[in-house]
Design a protein around this nucleic acid. Structure first.
Lengths: 210, 210
DNA sequence: GGCCGAATGTACCAGTTGGTACAAACGCCG
DNA sequence: CGGCGTTTGTACCAACTGGTACATTCGGCC
């Protein structure tokens, strides 16, 4: 029987899963410890036993979310010989990836509201982000060597352009959607919005340098 | 003597100004009514007298912030004859504009965390956003007529690309900055980041349609 | 000057919230 | 089986927090 009355690992991970939902929904201050506990098979006491404080729980949520997302990102593998195809694929896969992980993007937005004060306390996150940059570097280098890519752009610039667009789709969908009376999350519009970021990056990179 | 002991207008506007700062800093749930009042020459009582509730105050803050920003946006006037110059200028001025209004962008981020539930209650905001779109429409039309702009892109797409980039610079500076060890807000880097969004939009729009 | 409604200040409250003291139950190991 | 460290549940609290009752003061108007 799996119905173990005592299962430290399960208690901990259930707490983490529920806390992720609640923090993503209500923010750090908006989330209530009692609320998180109530949605669990265990009690508030366990939050303090395993995580020490509301803040400790939030930090654990943030860390796990980042690890999970980086893991998922490694699956984005672009092996096109042509750098133009490769960069377009990377941009559009990044779009898909972000659209599919809105809870994570909400957590990131919340963390930025707090000026990144919690993320800074988490060790080892930085190295986790290097693969994404490495792949970009490699594609750009091939494109430049082939003479098809402009030379006044580096991997961070490209990552910034792609991330901005993809994050904004999710993070700002409510205000942007309201002001311009458009639903960015609508399935009908997805293919177009997806193609746009591909077009943007390819058009930009294949244009002549200033 | 300007030192009026009683000045309804001043009390109200001081409350609004301080509340804007506090909400932008701490979010809706994070902000404390007592804290806002304490930073004022008046008392908490006045918040309830003028705004009815914490939520009423937040709504007033949001509305005033949007009106202010749209006002400022109307100053962005691009009168280049060449649509390519015009669109580059628009993109780069939008960048400057966003970088200079980070409190507003924080409020927008906070509002999106709340899924836009407050902004929806504010009447007349939608019409306020139309000028920006109108100007874009006009530039795009000229560019298409001249044969220099691709035809598979509309004003909303362009606005989305520009806004994404400019908002991200400010809204996500902390997490992005931390993960890639770069300070997006550094004055040294501004000219480059500013040029990038110009290059992106021009390169994209002047490339051939798919 | 005296009236009256708008504006303001003080004191207070009830519900909420993060956090904890204490003890009990569990299950592994010898 | 018995002991012992880990894990869990209950009850509780002190501080905080949004909100308000009530009294008071101000300033314009007749």
């Amino acid at each position: 029987m799996v119905e173990a009355r005592r299962d430290a690992e399960r208690t901990r991970s259930e707490l983490l899963a529920v806390a992720t939902e609640v923090f993503a929904e209500d923010g750090f201050s908006g989330a209530r410890v009692d609320d998180i506990a109530a949605r669990t098979r265990t009690t508030k006491r366990m939050i303090y036993y395993y995580f020490g404080s509301k803040e400790g729980l939030y930090r654990a949520v943030l860390e796990e979310a980042y690890r999970g997302i980086r893991e998922a990102e490694r699956a984005i593998d672009v092996d096109h010989a042509d750098p133009v195809d490769a960069i377009r694929a990377l941009a559009e896969l990044t779009y898909d990836h972000h659209v599919g992980h809105d809870a994570f993007i909400r957590l990131v937005a919340i963390e930025n509201i707090h000026r990144g004060s919690f993320i800074r306390q988490i060790e080892g996150l930085r190295t986790l982000s290097q693969p994404a940059k490495g792949m970009l570097d490699e594609i750009l280098e091939r494109g430049r060597a082939a003479g098809t890519f402009r030379t006044d752009v580096d991997a961070i610039d490209v990552h910034l352009v792609i991330s901005s667009y993809c994050v904004f789709q999710v993070a700002n969908q409510y205000t942007f959607g309201h002001l311009f009376d458009i639903d960015l999350a609508s399935a009908d519009r997805r293919p177009h919005l997806r193609a746009v970021i591909g077009d943007v990056v390819v058009g930009w990179l294949t244009a002549a340098s200033r």
